[in-house]
Simulated assay, not measured.
Amino acid sequence: MSDSSPVRFGILGCANIARKASRAIALAPNAVISAVGSRSFEKATAFAKENGYPSTTKIYGSYEAVLDDPEVDAVYVPLPTSLHVKWAALAAQKKKHVLLEKPVALNVKELDVILEECESNGVQFMDATMWMHHPRTAKMKEFLSDSQRFGHLKSVHSTVAYFGDTEFLKNNIRVKADLDALGALGDVGWYCIRAILWITDYELPKTVTALRDPKLNEVGVILSCGASLSWKDGRIATFYCSLLTNIAMDIVASGSKGNLRVHDFVIPFQENVAPFYTVENSRFGELATVIHPAPTEQQVGTDLPQEALMVKKFSDLVGSIKGKDYKPDKKWPTISRKTQLVVDAVKASIEKGFEPVEVIY
């Protein structure tokens, strides 16, 4: 494959999120769906038809067959988290580049198995945290990095939640201990933690302390929880994640000179444009009846949805490895591992009676 050829994707499984990723691959200018595999040939066939796969797409009745296909360069893995360590590691062993759904693993020990296989086999790893690839994210970072406008970071708060109905809370894989045992912490908590680390330039907190009274289901899977994070220099962060609350996707970052707010950071309310709000040098007006200045709304447009931009970025990296003999970009596995470490620390703090847990890379 030359560096100008599209990256040929294999899809492992027919999860609902794979529908969104399939559309993203179709929209990305440097990627194509080459194969799809499920545990049954009939299910894979129906999935390919329902999602408008190219007629050239190969249909397989197993995940192994996708990994054994020499015309598959990379795989997208949307399987339940409990299956990630097996299939992502095997994909790397088969020299397939790995785009892995979040949460990437049940714990950092499992993730390390995946990352070691990716590194030893020279394949690119990236987790599918889509919002990081929206151009709004880079624009927000410009503001946060401006010492004259934002100043020094003091605190971050993030909330990500949605409401699971009775059917969801009974049957969805996110509430099954044998499939996605991290529950809300791994699903929506991943976004909160990644946002906090992104704002702190991926500097891990010194300690993580889970907030009391998380909500668990009858098999012990987390349905909602929160935590506080602290750094040696006094910065603090908090987050709340839930499967029991109306949709929320918020970040509030407070600096010594300015603030940033965004209300839809995980999935923008509109696909082609996304806002965020900044304010600098706020002060009270006469009699403290108003605040000056009012926040400014920044609008950031995009020609491609963020998930297609993610596929494009991943495919750019894969193309450089295959066409130019570049090494895999270590940024992506590093930030995945740091996110997983904080997820693990929150879970450990809950299990230890809400005691602070030190985070060690």
Rank of each mutant, 00 (worst) to 15 (best):
F9I: 06
E42L: 08
I59A: 07
V66G: 08
L67F: 01
V72S: 03
A74H: 05
P80S: 02
W87H: 06
Q93V: 14
H97C: 10
L99I: 02
L106C: 01
L111N: 06
V123F: 02
M132E: 05
R136Y: 02
R136Q: 07
S145K: 14
H152F: 07
K154V: 06
S158R: 02
V160Q: 05
A161M: 12
Y162W: 15
F163L: 15
K170P: 02
I173F: 00
D178N: 14
D180Q: 13
D180K: 03
A181T: 10
L182N: 09
A184Y: 01
W198D: 10
W198M: 04
L204C: 05
K206N: 10
T207Y: 04
L216D: 09
V219G: 00
G226P: 04
W231R: 08
Y240Q: 07
L243Q: 03
L244Y: 03
T245Q: 14
N246K: 13
S256W: 09
N272S: 11
P293N: 14
Q299W: 15
A308I: 04
S320A: 09
I321H: 01
I321R: 01
T334K: 13
I335K: 02
S336E: 07
L341E: 06
K352C: 10
G353Q: 13
F354H: 07
E358K: 12
